[in-house]
Design a protein around this nucleic acid. Structure first.
Length: 619
DNA sequence: CTTAGGG
DNA sequence: CCCTAAG
């Protein structure tokens, strides 16, 4: 037994090894450990962002009036450009064109400075004049043509963000051709180089870009790029992003399924914590994936079927033949129902979210296909048979995320989701653990977490086509979605009476005062180290915030503290005298474990006190 | 609920 | 301090 080992150590003369203090917040580590599988963390974030982006895109496209929150995501990057822009502007930019991207200038600048002196033109032409002469600002909108022309040129390499280094080409010719653009830009309407767009005037690409080929093999990526970049431009025009995002956020929060019992709008970010434990409910796992349908290349119409509960978005990309192209631009993690007390820190909120996400993913998920709101059970059916074809209106096509069959046995507590959480009646920790036990994956599940995450990521847009076909299983027609399935992962804390919201958090740390330590040592000397309840009653009867577990823990740390060098100790210093007593009592009770306990308790405290040490232990 | 220990 | 497995 561990105790024994320590005992041995003690008998050797309290020669405790100087064990470095273990990290305090292990809990945090545990949490991270559970989720931080390599890049999982990042990946999950990515999913989220993509989701948000996708969502926003849908909205921004369907409503020109709506602000584009996605811009915020790009805000930072844009900032960089702005900086550059302002700098180059100072160099003589007299162009009147509004917001052409700085990259263009950047490119120009590079070109200028990269050309050998012998190239003449540049060498003799001031920057400002250079620009005026060549009308660089107009090239942006014609990059496509320019590029085609440029492609015929030679001896030109791109440098960095489109910077050009031309060794031998004719400067004037090159300029005329739009040298400032990377040749890989928009060739044939394909988006090949994201950096390309940086050189495009505000939104020009959106208008001039040719999306006719979006239905091809690697369209997903292009499509994504397109949105990503086109939105980047918009950011110039719409600075008030934070607000937008915020509103969007709340908007989504409000999108609560009826079957959940109560609307999120009503509840807001509720606290399902029970004693510092967080609960997250995933109401319907079966979230219809929003998908957008592209009726024409120039996005003349984008229909968004939004139930507010979508977990992703899909785009149908027109295509000739019988191919049905679907592009799931993003998968939004199914709703996470997280509640945190207002007093919780942002950090704890983040951890809670992470935990919720990990739980969500660790359960195992799979994709389901919905047509007209009904689940397509027969996986052997062809898409066309199912009604999924490029000719069909795919407005009714959707995807769902479902809990993996074999996993997640449906814990739950979903008997009465409507039960409002009463902050004053939360049950004790036992209840909390209970709930968590059912909600949090078990060891094996956790192990699968990573895989699940990975597989989930496969659904992310630019990572490839989504496979609508799945290995077959049983066959049935379109069947209504069983309500049960919808709630599969709905982990809602109910049978627990909400407790004081404050307790949701980890108890505030309350370092033991010297007085308390003294009392503790005193009690342990008398009662031993195996009767914490008694210690509590004797010395901390009125200290409600000190549980016997706390006392036990404190004793543990005291023993440790006493065994390390004073330099390694932290916090309010405990008198050495007390520490000595700690070690003495520790040694004593270690050797007399069990023997004196019962006896000591029955005996007169005063007699028991001290006597045991003098007579029983020789330190 | 308590203990005993690991986190 | 927290969390839990064991009594």
């Amino acid at each position: 037994m561990v105790f024994k080992r320590k005992l041995d150590c003690l008998s050797v003369g309290f020669d405790f090894p100087n064990i470095p203090r273990a990290p305090r917040s292990c809990r945090r580590k545990v949490l991270n450990k559970r989720i931080d599988h390599d890049d999982d963390n990042t990946q999950i974030c990515a999913i989220d962002l993509l989701a948000l982006a996708g969502k926003i895109l849908q909205e921004s496209e369907s409503s020109s009036a709506s602000s584009n929150a996605f811009e915020e995501i790009k805000q930072e990057k844009v900032e960089n450009c702005k900086t550059i822009k302002s700098e180059s502007s100072d160099q003589g930019n007299s162009v009147s064109k509004p917001t052409y991207d700085i990259s263009t200038e950047k490119c120009v600048v590079n070109s200028c400075f990269s050309f050998p002196d012998s190239d003449g033109v540049l060498e003799r032409t001031p920057m400002s004049d250079y620009k005026k002469i060549h009308g660089l600002m107009d090239v942006g909108c014609e990059n496509k043509n320019v590029n085609n022309g440029f492609e015929q040129g030679e001896a030109t390499d791109r440098v960095g963000d489109g910077g050009l280094v031309t060794d031998t080409c004719n400067l004037e010719d090159a300029t005329a051709l739009g040298l400032q653009f990377p040749k890989s830009v928009c060739v044939g309407g394909d988006l090949k180089s994201p950096s390309t767009l940086d050189m495009t005037p505000n939104g020009s690409y959106a208008r001039h870009g040719n999306h006719t080929n979006l239905g091809r093999k690697d369209d997903d990526e292009k499509f994504y790029s397109y949105h990503k970049l086109s939105n980047k431009f918009k950011s110039y025009r719409s600075p008030t992003i934070r607000r937008i995002r915020k509103s969007m956020s709340s908007k989504y929060w409000k999108q609560v399924p009826k079957d959940f019992g109560y609307s999120r709008a009503d509840v807001g970010v509720k606290t399902l914590y029970r004693k510092r434990k967080s609960c997250y409910g995933y109401n319907a796992w079966q979230r219809e994936i929003i998908y957008k349908r592209r009726r024409s290349p120039d996005r003349s119409s984008v229909v968004t079927s939004d139930g507010g509960l979508s977990s992703g978005s899909v785009s149908k990309l027109p295509k000739k033949g019988d191919t049905v192209k679907l592009s799931i631009k993003s998968f939004r993690i199914p709703e996470l129902f997280i509640e945190v007390p207002e007093t919780a820190t942002v950090g704890s909120l983040k951890r809670t979210v992470m935990e919720a996400v990990s739980v969500l993913l660790s359960g195992g998920i799979r994709v389901g296909v919905l047509m007209h709101g009904k689940k397509v059970r027969d996986e052997r059916k062809t898409l066309s048979q199912t009604g999924i074809s490029c000719d069909e209106n795919l407005d009714n096509l959707g995807f769902t995320l479902e809990p993996s069959p074999s996993k997640v046995p449906l814990p739950l507590c979903s008997e009465d989701p409507a039960v409002p959480t009463d902050p004053t009646s939360l049950s004790e920790r036992s209840a909390a653990s209970h709930m968590l036990d059912s909600g949090i994956p078990h060891a094996d599940d956790v192990i699968d977490s990573r895989n699940i995450v990975d597989s989930n990521l496969e659904l992310v847009p630019y990572q490839g086509d989504i496979s609508v076909d799945e290995p077959s299983s049983d066959s049935k027609e379109l069947v209504p979605l069983p309500e049960l399935e919808v709630k599969a992962l709905a982990i809602v804390p109910l049978n627990q009476k909400p407790k004081r919201t404050e307790l949701a958090q980890r108890r505030t740390r309350r370092p033991f005062s010297v007085t308390e330590v003294e009392a503790l040592v005193q009690a342990v000397e008398e009662l031993g180290t195996g009767r914490w309840r008694d210690v509590k009653l004797r010395a901390f009867e009125d200290a409600d915030h000190r549980t016997y577990v706390d006392l036990k823990d404190k004793w543990k740390t005291l023993v440790h503290t006493a065994s390390i060098s004073p330099q390694q100790r932290r916090g309010e210093p405990v008198p050495q005298e007390l520490l000595d007593r700690v070690l003495r009592a520790y040694g004593y009770w270690s050797q007399h474990q069990g023997k004196h306990q019962a006896r000591g308790a029955s005996k007169d405290p005063d007699m028991n006190r001290g006597g045991a040490f003098e007579s029983g232990v020789s330190v």
